[in-house]
């Protein structure tokens, strides 16, 4: 157990500098790189110099860099970050849009796990068969297809031609427990809302998942084949255990590397959200970021990018910890 403790300590210790580095990089991107944001916020070239001065003072843009950085950190922690464009608190604006992105990624993740993993096992069991080849093609097409193109193609089929989906609004139930309708409706056993959520989100989630399904299936396949050729399988065969028991053991071993990649996949889903949300008209964090950029709202950009990075880093921390608990071999 001391091994595990040491691993967890080490992992936690690298987590802290990463988070500090993330805040620093975000600050650098949105506060240092833009050329004269105050003028943009005041209305561009024709802005009143007095207004520009006021904005500079309000957002501490006339102060030294390090002071600006601590001002930014303080505002992030105390929820005092105010958008210069919408004049709303950035965290509250983002918080309103977060449930949409979470539902999108959660459903997408469900698709990846429930389609990708069985497909991978199937293609490992029937190696070099038609299924195996189809999975390979799916993986190749998945990483080659522009998400927006696939999205419009499917909108053409399911919206324009078949009329099966809607592209407006997002279902919000009258109650709120976690703030995420998908989870709330499951807790409350409210199948009406649940059905609405699924109807609105299934196609965007599938589009977002598509790029990853084939990749995960290939990974599961290779990992499964690796596990199948390891020594313990020979031992199991020699002991004469049933093949069902054998495959349970193989599957357990094959899943270990898959878990790490699933953690990374989560980042890919968050990254894909802006495009998917834009095409399907979902008011999520990604869509909001893109709109903020259009209005030079760099504080919202800061908040959004920071939020996504923090979610991603935390997910990967949890993945690494669970990985170490599941597999004693990775504790270093």
């Amino acid at each position: 157990m001391s091994d595990l403790k040491r691993f967890l300590l080490r992992r936690a210790l690298t987590f802290i500098p990463t988070v500090i580095g993330v805040t620093f990089l975000v600050f650098f991107i949105a506060a240092v790189l833009p050329a004269d944001p105050a003028k943009l916020w005041a209305g561009g070239e024709k802005a009143n110099p007095q207004v520009v001065e006021n904005i500079k003072r309000e957002y501490r843009l006339d102060r030294p860099i390090w002071e600006q950085y601590f001002f930014f950190l303080k505002n992030v922690v105390t929820n005092e970050m105010v958008s210069p464009v919408s004049h709303n608190k950035v965290w509250e604006d983002l918080g309103r849009r977060l449930p949409v992105t979470i539902q999108l990624t959660l459903l997408s993740f469900t698709f990846i796990v429930s389609i990708g993993i069985p497909l991978g096992i199937l293609s490992a069991l029937k190696r070099d068969s038609v299924i195996d080849m189809l999975v390979r093609i799916l993986a190749l097409l998945g990483v080659s297809t522009p998400v927006f193109w696939l999205a419009y193609l499917l909108i053409f089929i399911f919206f324009t031609r078949l009329g099966w989906i809607t592209l407006a609004g997002t279902p919000v139930p009258p109650y709120s427990i976690t703030g995420i309708p998908l989870i709330d409706s499951i807790i409350k056993l409210d199948f009406h809302t649940f059905k609405q959520v699924i109807e609105r989100y299934w196609l965007p989630s599938l589009v977002l998942a598509y790029a990853n399904i084939g990749v995960i299936a290939r990974l599961v396949r290779n990992s499964f084949l690796d596990a199948l050729s390891s020594d313990f399988v020979e031992f199991i065969d020699a002991r004469g255990l049933s093949s069902r028991r054998k495959y349970v053991h193989v599957l357990k071993n094959a899943m270990v590397p898959v878990i790490t990649v699933l953690g990374l996949t989560f980042g890919g889903l968050l990254a894909g959200a802006p495009i998917t949300e834009t095409v399907f008209g979902l008011p999520g964090v990604g869509r909001y970021l893109i709109d903020a950029i259009r209005f030079y709202d760099y504080l919202t950009l800061m908040g959004g990018v920071l939020l996504i990075a923090l979610i991603y880093v935390t997910v990967n921390l949890l993945v690494d910890i669970s990985y170490a608990i599941i597999d004693p071999r990775v504790r270093y």
Binding site: T14, P17, T18, V19, G21, V22, F24, L25, V26, I29, A30, L33, P34, A35, D36, G267, G268, L270, A271, G272, P274, L289, I290, I293, Y298, L301, V305, I308, A309, Y312, V313
Partner: peptide
């Protein structure tokens, strides 16, 4: 490696979006 960790902490496309949004002025 710590610096690399910071850059890997962002999903790639998000970081690209952020940089390409703020760089044009400079």
């Amino acid at each position: 490696m710590r610096i690399t960790d910071v850059f890997i902490a962002f999903p790639g496309l998000i970081l690209a979006i952020a940089f390409s949004a703020v760089l044009p002025g400079r």
